[in-house]
Amino acid sequence: MARVTVFTLGGTISARGGDASRMSGAEVLAELGVAPAGVDVELRDFRRVPSSTLSFEDVAALADEVGKTVAEGSGVVVVQGTDTLEETAFLLDLLCTTEEPVVVTGAMRRPDLPGADGPANLAAALAVAADPGCRGLGVLVVLADEIHAARFAHKAHTTSVATFTSPGAGPLGSVVEGVPRILLRPAVPARVCPLRLDPDVRVALLTLSLGDRGELLDAVADRHGGLVVAAFGAGHVPAWFVEPLAALAERMPVVLASRTGAGATLSDTYRSPGSEYDLLHRGLIPAGPLAPAKARLLLHALLSSGARGPAGYDRPRISAAFAHFDGAGLA
């Protein structure tokens, strides 16, 4: 039998009504009824919190436990709330080296509501985690019978059970009659080099909006080790933002992402003040296709893993890591 270890962290799938109480991991598994045939399930009741409460310390501890578990030959399913599911999945993808399937799932409807989706999502996740054909895909997100790569997965709706999409890529496959069907495979692994997660590292995320004057930049300079800017369009900021960002880029890595939610940042299409060309030539680092929240996590892991020091930060290494996700390869 295939062995799958289930780590339960809480979330909607374990909610008892609308208050703060949570079911245990054993109770969540009991809602499933019977595990898929041929799957030996081991339970780890890891946390019982809403995913909005999860911390870097929680995810670092989870990554450590997942790493030990897959080293023993077990597939893994992580069950948590959907609010930060895409971020947990991406961090696990960066931190864990494994060929074994690691799947993150959850639910959009509480167990006491009509059409609760938790049991179906858990069954599909177990099927994927137990399937040898799903090895080597990196960390996966499985909900609504769709299989998404963690690097692309995005929660795109507040309530829909089909909330998870993969903008610009699409799902890797689906679960049909309890059997995973993989149609696509990522071109490169997510883990670009040995990475760890230091909870004490601070990376800011600043999302621009019309009329923004940059007041929040003052809070970044002395409190953070890096910054991700969720800019307009393909990587554009107001002209008055350029000099403050360039000054910050001399002191810390400043990554240029897009707030749009899909598509890669550009590099050479527009050349006016505040354009992507202007910003990249002033030291900012392109996020490529990574969404701002995931760009922040990658930068956090890089800074946690030695891409900084008393002489400044290792810009070539950080740039190469982001280029890896853009299909340009790792230098």
Rank of each mutant, 00 (worst) to 15 (best):
A107S: 14
E146N: 14
T105A: 04
A162M: 10
L140E: 13
T98C: 12
G106R: 06
V161D: 12
A129Q: 05
K155L: 12
A130E: 00
L122S: 13
V128W: 03
L184Y: 14
A116Q: 10
P119D: 05
R185K: 04
D112A: 08
E177P: 04
A127Q: 11
R151W: 12
N121D: 07
D145T: 09
R151G: 00
P180G: 00
P114Y: 02
V102H: 09
M108H: 06
V141R: 01
L113R: 14
S166W: 01
G178I: 02
I182S: 01
A107L: 08
V176G: 03
P119T: 12
L183W: 13
G118D: 11
L183F: 10
S166Y: 03
N121C: 03
P132D: 09
N121Q: 07
L137I: 04
V102L: 12
P132H: 06
A153F: 02
H148R: 02
H157Q: 09
A124L: 05
M108I: 05
V139R: 01
V103N: 12
A169C: 07
L184S: 06
A150Q: 02
V139C: 02
A123Y: 09
P111I: 06
R181V: 15
T165Y: 05
G118Q: 13
S174F: 15
P101G: 10
G138M: 04
A150R: 00
A107K: 07
R151M: 04
V176N: 09
A169N: 07
A150P: 03
A153K: 06
A116P: 02
E100A: 12
A156Y: 10
H154G: 02
A129L: 06
R151N: 00
A120N: 14
P180N: 04
S160V: 05
A124F: 04
G178D: 06
G138K: 05
S166I: 05
P119G: 03
V142M: 04
R110K: 13
M108Y: 08
A129K: 07
S174A: 15
V161N: 09
T105S: 12
A123G: 11
H148S: 03
R109D: 00
G133R: 13
A150N: 00
T98G: 10
S166M: 04
H157N: 15
